[in-house]
Every structure is written in structure tokens, then in C-alpha cells.
Nucleic acid binder design. Structure first.
Lengths: 130, 130
DNA sequence: CCGTAACTGAAAAAAAATTTCAATAAGGTA
DNA sequence: TACCTTATTGAAATTTTTTTTCAGTTACGG
């Protein structure tokens, strides 16, 4: 759990590491790609408004990623580089680490676009649904 | 413009090609990755509920893709295979055709996951913002 | 410690999405 | 062509989600 590092980044950028923000962060780190509801239920003491604002802040800082995998928005820690396998039948989401991007081609795609990050979602059917 | 083909697919699956659905389809095809508001303003005669339902239907049929590029949901025709360059400064969205995925690696990522499609978003800064 | 600017949260408001249901119309059939 | 059946539409109401407001609170540098 690298929460310490993330908290350090929050402070480093001039924001306060309040208990509420830390609680939201812990909630997010408990499980990847959670719904808002899931996050909220993991930090019941934090007001809804603060959860929204904290997610905005952390997304803006690039510490948290916001996903749309079909239903409502989902959130996850942006620490590690990984991608998603989304089952179109049951909606389950799995992750995989091995990035199938060809690194030689990525810099070319954009011309003078400065690439900073990327996000890949793979859709299909999971083994259980086959 | 391949609307005829898409309309054929709607009918082929047993759904009716109503004027409202065609109007929504034309609105979507007018510009890629539009917001709901943009689509609505391009087919003012179609009620909001019908727009929502049509987008659900077309997404379900795989004819339209739903995106989350940062702000609200966006939609585009799913005909052609392309990906997105999203500028984190100004929010502009560009497309590119050349898919940088290594096709040899993709089948392996999922184990027994059956891959049907994928979606790639590249984040960074556009040339204008540099 | 103190002071201050950043932060929180309850309530209210606004925005977005969904449900309901009576009326309508597409598209097959005779 | 007229008809019939069933899918579809849309206005209104409802529900859900997100944002705004603002008075009170707190983190943290000095």
C-alpha cells in the first residue's frame, strides 16, 4: 500500500492531507474500479460532497483514474499501469498487466501530440460466460 | 455516409427503423464523439426519452460506441476502427487510425477471455497547447 | 500556539437519467 | 390497399446523480 507516497504528493502540490481525503484514498485503494457507491460505503464518515470533491482533486492530480466501463463512473488508483478486460455479458471487469501496445508505434500516432499516458479497454466475453 | 447499412442492421435484428431513430443516427453521424446535448440539438424533433432509448439500442447492437473522455458521456458511430488523442489541457479530442496494438499480444492477455473489440485512449497535450 | 487560507458538510438546487402509460405508427399480412 | 399487431414514442412525473452555497471547522506554516 503506497498511500504514504500519494499523501506526500497531495501535500507537495500545496493541498492539505485532511483525514477525509485520506479516508477516501483508503477506500479507493481497497479495490480497483469501484463505483462511487462502493467508495462511499467504505468511508461512511465522509460527506458525499467531499467524496465528489476529493475524486475531482485526485483525478486532477493524476493520482486516481476515472473509468467508464459501461455503467456509471468508476475509480481506481492510477499507480500501476494496467488495462481492463470487460465482459459484455456479465459486466465483470478484470485487469491485465501485460500492455499489448507496440511502444514503437505509439510516439508516431500523434504527430506533434505529446503523449503522457494511455488507457486500453478490451471488450468480449469472460470465461465464465462462454 | 453508411447510414443505409446501419438502418439495414437495425431492421435485420427485428427493430423498426423509425424516423426518430434515423434522425438520431444522422445526428450522431454528423460528428464523432458528440455529447448528448450535441446530438439532441441536431434532432430537435425527437424527444429526450427517445434519444436515450435509441442510444441504448444502438450501443447494444454495437453500432454506436459510448465514450467517457473526461466530461460527460459521448457517442460516435462504431463503423470504423480508430482511437482517440485527448488533450488534458484544452480537452480537445482528435482521432487516429493507425492502431498501435501489437496483434500478437492481444489474444494472449486474457487467457480464456474471448476478445471482441478494444478501445484505446491516449492522453497528453495537443500541439496547440504546447 | 496563532492566524489564515483551505477545507468540510448539510441543505438546497440543478442537472441527468429513468419510469410510466396512453396514444401512435411501422411493417407484415391478406 | 386496408388492416392488425406489436413495437415505439413522448409528455409528465419520478428518481438518481452531481453541483452550488455558505457558515462553521481545521490543517499546517510561521
Amino acid at each position: 500500500m503506497e498511500l504514504e507516497g500519494i499523501i506526500g504528493k497531495i501535500r507537495g502540490r500545496g493541498y492539505k492531507a485532511t483525514p477525509q481525503r485520506v479516508a477516501v484514498l483508503e477506500a479507493i485503494s481497497a479495490e480497483q474500479h469501484q463505483s462511487l457507491e462502493g467508495i462511499r460505503s467504505r468511508c461512511p464518515g465522509v460527506g458525499m460532497v467531499t467524496v465528489y470533491r476529493t475524486l475531482d482533486l485526485l483525478s486532477g492530480l493524476g493520482l486516481v483514474r476515472r473509468l467508464d466501463l459501461g455503467d456509471g463512473p468508476r475509480y481506481e488508483l492510477a499507480e500501476d499501469h494496467h488495462h481492463h478486460l470487460i465482459c459484455e455479458d456479465c459486466g465483470s471487469v478484470a485487469e491485465f498487466e501485460q500492455c499489448p501496445l507496440d511502444p514503437r508505434q505509439l510516439p508516431e500516432v500523434g504527430g506533434d501530440f505529446e503523449v503522457r499516458a494511455h488507457s486500453l479497454e478490451v471488450y468480449g466475453r469472460c470465461s465464465a460466460c462462454r
